[in-house]
Simulated assay, not measured.
Amino acid sequence: MWWTSWDAVVRIVLVGAAGYAALVLLLRVSGKRTLAKLNAFDFVVTVALGSTLATLLLDQKTSWTDGVVALALLVLLQLLVALLTTWWEATRGVVTAQPTLLLADGSVRRDVLRRNRISESELRQAVRSSGQGDLGSLAAVVLETDGTMSVVPLSAAGDRSALADLDQATLAHLRAVTDR
């Protein structure tokens, strides 16, 4: 269908502007965490927000109030999950992935790369992007919960307390490599 009516176009403009304003307001109220780098849960919420806004814009049966209540519910649930994962460590593993050690003291963990579907070329790219040029000069490369890779040079590793949230098997591997 190429054309419905001016009423439909005016509704899209008015409800779209009001829905957009409501979404921006809700996101500002919910804080920076809602717009941070995305883990799987954040990605799902972001897609759901976009889908809800699109429905609000295009479905004439959906009132502005219904759409804003749906948007507010999604933002509230995201905020609630963020609070739960902050307060109770056990809930974090349900919602977000565990950071993963890809390289330890210059040694590439090829089995871990394969398990996480990351090529050595992608690992080297992350290392280069961090300004490093020698894998042997690195204490760690960590695949973070949002899919980014953090590079820790040996010269900046210190007591390695920044790696404390890695899983216990990874920490044991790291200690074994460090003790050599």
Score class of each variant (00 low, 15 high):
Gly158Met: 09
Ser161Asn: 12
Val108Ala: 09
Val112Met: 06
Ser121Gly: 09
Leu25Asp: 00
Thr62Lys: 06
Glu144Arg: 10
Ala104Glu: 08
Ala90Thr: 15
Leu49Ile: 08
Val108Gln: 05
Leu57Ile: 10
Thr65Leu: 15
Leu57Asn: 11
Ala139Arg: 08
Thr34Val: 08
Arg114His: 13
Leu58Asn: 10
Ala21Lys: 00
Ala54Pro: 03
Ser63Ala: 09
Val95Ile: 14
Arg110Tyr: 11
Lys61Thr: 13
Val45Gln: 07
Phe41Gly: 01
Val29Ile: 15
Asp179Val: 08
Ala17Lys: 00
Asp146His: 11
Gln60Leu: 04
Ala72Arg: 11
Ala90Val: 14
Leu171Thr: 01
Ser5Gly: 07
Leu138Glu: 11
Leu58Phe: 13
Asp159Glu: 15
Thr62Ile: 14
Thr52Ile: 09
Leu174Phe: 14
Gly50Cys: 02
Val95Met: 06
Thr178Met: 05
Arg92Ser: 14
Val45Ala: 11
Leu80Arg: 10
Asp42Phe: 06
Val68Glu: 04
Ala70Ile: 12
Ala82Thr: 11
Leu80Asp: 07
Val29Trp: 05
Val69His: 13
Trp88Arg: 14
Leu35Tyr: 03
Ala169His: 10
Thr46Ile: 00
Glu89Trp: 12
Thr34Ser: 06
Leu166Ile: 11
Arg128Asp: 06
Trp64Glu: 06
Leu77Thr: 12
Asp66Val: 13
Gly106Arg: 09
Glu122Thr: 09
Ala17Gly: 11
Ser150Arg: 10
Asn39Phe: 04
Trp3Val: 01
Thr96Ser: 15
Gly133Pro: 02
Ala126Gly: 07
Leu79Ile: 03
Pro99Met: 14
Ile118Glu: 07
Trp6Ile: 01
Thr62Gly: 00
Thr85Lys: 15
Leu174Tyr: 14
Arg28Phe: 01
Thr170Ile: 02
Asp134Phe: 05
Val15His: 02
Val75Gln: 01
Ala169Pro: 05
Asp165Trp: 07
Asp7Gln: 08
Leu76Phe: 13
Ala36Ser: 14
Asn116Arg: 14
Ser121Trp: 03
Met149Phe: 04
Thr65Asn: 04
Leu103Met: 08
Gln60Phe: 05
Arg92Leu: 10
Arg11Val: 02
Thr170Cys: 13
Thr65Phe: 12
Ser137Lys: 09
Thr145Cys: 00
Val95Lys: 11
